[in-house]
């Protein structure tokens, strides 16, 4: 684990290394510690607070390989001022990094079991480190099933990698889109429609979900109807965050602070909260 800086609100300086364009509005950035400092490690599912000079700071999940030391990788969709500033950084420019924060995907608990990952849109980014981890330690896990839904084919992230993952042993990768277009020969429809192509063995399945809340609600229902138990389903939650260390109060979700008690929660802990509007 990384050692905590004395002031948890002051970022460490990182430099932008490579930048990859994923879609028209989404970019992946690799950040390396400036001044040759050691790079903080992380566990799949954790996030950082990224600071852009003169603009502000925002929570972004780490989307890279936890066993690739020396850099931290993030996939960012430009939706507003701060994310736009972030994706506009050029190699060599600086970004402040705090973290990593939050808990991680239950990869230890999932050992020896089938791992089912369900992502909606950008939700694939925080799940990618889990995919890397499972593939790197392939013999520790049963089947790997990745179900991924996006708006359109052009909005799908990591398309080359999706194809490469699908060729791995005991691995099933299915993508679907809301609007296919003429050249799309894959699935069309919501992500839950992909469940009919997989045969789950509920007793030996651990599921991890990330995406819009509405999508996660439907997926949990689907998983439960397949017989997967609530404690074996995990979701990553999102709320406004100003500090990531439990001070600002913004990320409260019922009794929890998503920054320190989450963002990954077992479904059994948040099930009743998910049903509450405006909580």
């Amino acid at each position: 684990m990384a050692t905590l800086p004395t002031d948890p609100m002051v970022p460490d300086p990182y430099r932008v290394g490579q930048v990859w364009k994923e879609t028209s509005d989404t970019f992946t950035l690799a950040l390396e510690p400036a001044d040759g400092a050691a790079c903080s490690g992380f566990s799949p599912g954790q996030f950082s607070m990224l600071y852009v000079f003169g603009v502000g700071e925002l929570p972004i999940s780490i989307s890279g390989d936890p066993e690739d030391p020396g850099r931290l990788i993030y996939t960012v969709r430009s939706v507003g001022q701060a994310t736009h500033a972030l994706v506009s950084r050029k190699p060599g420019e600086m970004v402040g990094v705090r973290g990593p924060f939050g808990g991680c995907w239950p990869l230890a608990e999932a050992r020896g079991k089938d791992v089912v990952l369900v992502a909606g849109g950008l939700g694939l980014a925080p799940l990618r480190p889990a995919i890397y981890q499972v593939l790197r330690h392939r013999e520790d896990y049963g089947r790997l099933i990745v179900l991924y839904g996006g708006r359109s084919p052009r909005d799908l992230l990591y398309r080359k990698e999706l194809a490469a993952w699908a060729r791995q042993p005991d691995t099933q990768v299915l993508s679907t889109v809301d609007y296919g277009g003429l050249s799309w020969r894959g699935h069309v429809g919501v992500v839950t429609s992909l469940f009919r192509y997989v045969r789950l063995q509920p007793a030996r399945t651990v599921a991890m979900l990330c995406g819009p809340e509405i999508m996660m609600r439907f997926v949990t229902r689907e998983l439960e109807s397949c017989g997967v138990q609530a404690p074996d389903i995990y979701l990553s939650m999102e709320r406004n965050m100003k500090c990531a260390v439990g001070f600002c109060g913004h990320c409260q979700y019922g009794p929890y602070f998503i920054c320190k008690d989450g963002p990954v929660f077992p479904y059994s802990k948040v099930r009743s909260l998910l049903e509450k509007h405006e909580i």
Binding site: D7, M9, V10, D12, P13, A34, M94, G96
Partner: peptide, 18 residues
């Protein structure tokens, strides 16, 4: 004030002066 930062060309320096 949590901290301040100073631009230096392409980069900036974080001055931890709360």
């Amino acid at each position: 004030r949590l901290f301040s930062a100073q631009r230096q060309g392409e980069t900036f320096r974080i001055l931890s002066n709360p």
